[in-house]
């Protein structure tokens, strides 16, 4: 073993992977770590909560789209500000602090953010951050009110923050098309679509 450890830096990645897999086969409890009823269930339900609600999906994607559309530093400021403020809204929901018209706020977020992209509105970065943050409170509150009944609150929190972040990254990735002429119009068209989905949820 000692000789092998001394030569480990000579291993290829493939050999290392094979060794690791071999060890994990011998100790399945470690390989599966925290997979179990409560924890995995909480993570899954938390992760799926933003993804299964189209009103959440379009708004989160719109945040990333708008960030990419505005360029630096909005490309990172908006996706950083949103989860932070959303968590505060989530905390309000968890402890039971009421916020009026949450569903209207969520639908409005899709409309406003979609229109910002569609109309190519480029406000100062601080104003964009404030707009995004205000809407983040509504999204967070909606998640937060469902948190206490989750199988595992910690896992649920991680799940929904990760899902939110990944939706932002999806928006950013699509928004990066803006550097090409066809992509520019594709991104603005996506903004129109997002605003229309928001309008549907507002009327529904």
């Amino acid at each position: 073993m000692a000789k092998y450890v001394a030569n480990v830096t000579e291993c290829t990645l493939q050999q290392l992977t094979q060794i690791s897999l071999g060890f994990f086969l011998l100790i399945p409890a470690v390989a599966f770590a925290h997979v179990g009823g409560g924890l995995s269930g909480g993570f899954t339900s938390g992760f799926m909560h933003p993804i299964l609600g189209w009103d959440h999906v379009v708004a989160m994607v719109a945040v990333g789209l708008w960030g990419a559309f505005l360029g630096r530093p909005a490309i990172w400021v908006l996706p950083v500000a949103f989860p932070l403020v959303m968590a505060i809204g989530g905390a309000f929901g968890v402890v039971g602090v009421p916020i009026p018209a949450v569903e209207i706020g969520i639908a409005s977020s899709a409309i406003v953010l979609g229109l910002m992209v569609a109309l190519a509105v480029k406000p100062p970065i601080w104003m964009a951050a404030i707009i995004v943050s205000v809407f983040a409170v509504f999204h967070g509150h909606a998640h937060g009110t469902e948190l206490p009944d989750a199988a595992n609150p910690f896992a649920y929190s991680i799940g929904f923050v990760l899902a939110t972040g990944m939706l932002h990254i999806s928006g950013i990735t699509f928004g990066l098309l803006v550097r090409w002429p066809a992509g520019y119009w594709a991104v603005r068209s996506a903004g129109v679509l997002i605003a229309m989905v928001g309008g549907y949820f507002l009327l529904a």
Partner: peptide
């Protein structure tokens, strides 16, 4: 972005 995710998770679990 990872930092903001960690802070967000921290805020929510603290609220519990």
């Amino acid at each position: 972005i990872a930092g903001s995710w960690i802070a967000a998770i921290g805020i929510i679990i603290t609220s519990f």
